Computed example of a mutant assay.
Amino acid sequence: MVRRTDTRQRMLDSAAELFHQQGYHATGLNQLVAAVGAPKGSLYFHFPGGKEQLAAEAIRQSAERLCDMLRAIVASSPDIITGVENVVEALATSLEESDFQRGCPLATVALDASGDSEAIRQACADGYTSWHTLIAEALNRPNTLDTGKADQLATVVLAAVEGGLLLAKTLHDTAPLRAIAPHLRTTLERELS
Results as ranks from 00 to 15, higher is better:
Thr5Gly: 11
Asp6Ser: 11
Thr7Arg: 14
Arg10Ala: 13
Leu12Tyr: 04
Ser14Gly: 00
Glu17Trp: 11
Gln21Cys: 11
Gln21Val: 15
Gly28His: 12
Asn30Phe: 06
Gln31Arg: 13
Leu32His: 05
Ala34Pro: 00
Gly37Ile: 12
Leu43Cys: 03
Phe47Met: 09
Pro48Ser: 10
Pro48Lys: 07
Gly49Trp: 07
Gly49Gln: 11
Glu52Thr: 15
Gln53Gly: 02
Ala58Thr: 08
Ser62His: 13
Ser62Val: 09
Met69Thr: 14
Arg71Asp: 14
Ile73Glu: 01
Asp79Trp: 06
Ile81Met: 05
Thr82Lys: 02
Gly83Leu: 08
Leu91Cys: 09
Ala92Thr: 08
Ala92Ser: 12
Glu97Val: 03
Asp99Leu: 07
Gln101Gly: 08
Gln101Cys: 11
Leu106Ile: 07
Ala107Lys: 07
Leu111Asn: 13
Leu111Ser: 11
Leu111Gly: 15
Asp112Ser: 14
Ser114Asp: 00
Gly115Arg: 13
Asp116Tyr: 09
Ala119Val: 01
Cys124Tyr: 08
Ser130Ala: 14
Thr133Ile: 02
Ile135Val: 12
Ala136Pro: 04
Ala138Gly: 04
Leu139Ser: 03
Arg141Cys: 03
Gly148Arg: 12
Ala150Gly: 00
Asp151Gln: 11
Leu153Thr: 04
Ala154Ile: 01
Ala154Pro: 00
Thr155Trp: 05
Glu162Ile: 00
Ala168Asp: 00
Thr170Tyr: 15
Thr170Glu: 06
His172Met: 13
Leu177Ile: 06
Ala179Glu: 10
Ile180Gln: 07
Ala181Arg: 09
Pro182Lys: 02
His183Leu: 15
Thr187Arg: 06
Arg190His: 12
Glu191Arg: 04
